[in-house]
Computed example of a mutant assay.
Amino acid sequence: MILVTGATGAVGREVAGQLAAAGPVRILARRPERVTVRGPGVDVVAGEYADRASLDRALRGIDAVFLVTNSPTEPDDARVAAAAAAAGVRHLVKLSMMAVEEPDADDFITRLQRGNERTIRQSGVPWTFIRPRAFMSNTLSWATGIRSDGVVRDLYGDAPVACVDPRDVAAVAVAALTGAGHEGQAYAVSGPEVITAREQTAQLSGLLGRPLRFEELPLDRAREALLAKYSQPVAEAFLESAERRRAGAKAAVLPTVEKLTGRPARTFRTWAADHTASFAATVRAG
């Protein structure tokens, strides 16, 4: 059986759903009521990375683990790797990020993920790293502005990025979890095209059938908005990442999705067409 963590997030939810469609799967969740993947073969168990007893229970009888961690302060990768090694898990597939393999990336989040990968390598559990580029679903952060006044506000509207559909990242992870010969591999995953925020805005406009305008945020306003949500190291990491995007460091298109799944990666237009309701929904007061 396979254990999926992060099943309330963009990729983990898709991994759990794709696995559940083919057979039994176990999901570890801090808040099981938030898990939307359900079915006769889905075993949802409550637990936390910091609770070793709950980890041990979740890992009982598990052959492979899909691991998602996002805490900037907690040693969650070390916790799961140690418990997985003790439980005899034969394969750990970790969601990482493409920047870890890029020498010019040295922000806080990238350094953290490099350390997490090192921890997994040293655990003794056979591993695979899934390293995606930025998710297309990040544009959901534009939804409020689009619904309220038809404006997309973001940094660097002309910066190119080969963003990827989380469903395709999940499909690569599922291929690694269920196939043979993936141990010791790191898969960088991009979308099939390079696109800018202005171009994404134009595509959303066409799909929604209404005019949208892109407004480039000044750096100080972007920093202020990020600091309202994140700690300073994390906020600054996002800004450094945006600067790398503006410099063209995130424009490489890779064939990983097609190689591992047998079909092309989805375009942004396809992703957006499947999520127009998120941008078009009417916000009701009260």
Rank of each mutant, 00 (worst) to 15 (best):
M1I: 00
M1S: 01
L3I: 15
T5H: 09
T8N: 03
T8Y: 00
T8G: 05
T8K: 04
V11M: 13
E14D: 09
E14L: 06
A16C: 05
A20C: 03
A21R: 15
A22R: 08
G23C: 04
G23A: 01
R26W: 04
A29W: 04
E33D: 14
T36E: 03
T36G: 00
T36Y: 00
V42D: 10
V42N: 11
V42C: 10
V44K: 04
G47R: 05
E48V: 03
A50P: 00
D51P: 02
R52K: 07
A53I: 01
A53G: 12
L55Q: 02
D56W: 12
R60N: 09
R60K: 13
F66V: 07
L67C: 07
V68R: 15
P72Y: 10
T73C: 06
E74I: 01
D77K: 04
A78W: 04
A82I: 11
A82F: 06
A82C: 10
A85E: 10
G88H: 02
L92M: 05
V93P: 02
V93N: 02
K94M: 04
M98K: 10
A99Y: 05
A99R: 11
E101A: 13
P103K: 15
A105Y: 15
D107M: 04
F108V: 12
F108I: 07
T110L: 12
G115I: 08
N116A: 14
T119E: 10
S123E: 07
S123H: 06
V125A: 01
P126G: 05
F135Q: 09
F135W: 11
S137G: 07
N138S: 14
T139H: 04
L140F: 15
L140Q: 09
S141Q: 12
G145L: 14
S148Q: 13
D149L: 08
V152W: 09
V152K: 11
L155A: 07
L155H: 01
L155R: 07
D158A: 14
P160K: 11
C163E: 12
V164P: 03
P166G: 06
V169D: 05
A170H: 09
A170C: 01
A173K: 00
V174E: 01
V174C: 00
A175Y: 06
T178Q: 02
G179F: 01
A180G: 12
H182S: 02
G184E: 07
A186D: 04
Y187A: 13
V194S: 12
A197C: 12
Q200P: 04
Q200I: 13
A202M: 10
A202E: 02
R210W: 10
P211T: 14
P211A: 09
F214E: 05
E215D: 12
E216G: 03
P218K: 13
P218V: 14
R221I: 09
L226Y: 08
A228N: 09
K229V: 09
Q232S: 07
V234C: 14
V234I: 15
A242Q: 08
R245V: 00
R246S: 12
A249P: 07
K250I: 00
A251Y: 11
L254G: 12
L254N: 06
T256L: 04
T256V: 04
E258M: 07
K259D: 11
K259C: 08
T261K: 01
T261F: 06
R263E: 06
R263V: 01
R263T: 04
F268W: 13
R269I: 02
R269L: 08
A272M: 12
D274N: 10
H275I: 11
H275K: 14
T276E: 02
A277R: 10
A281L: 07
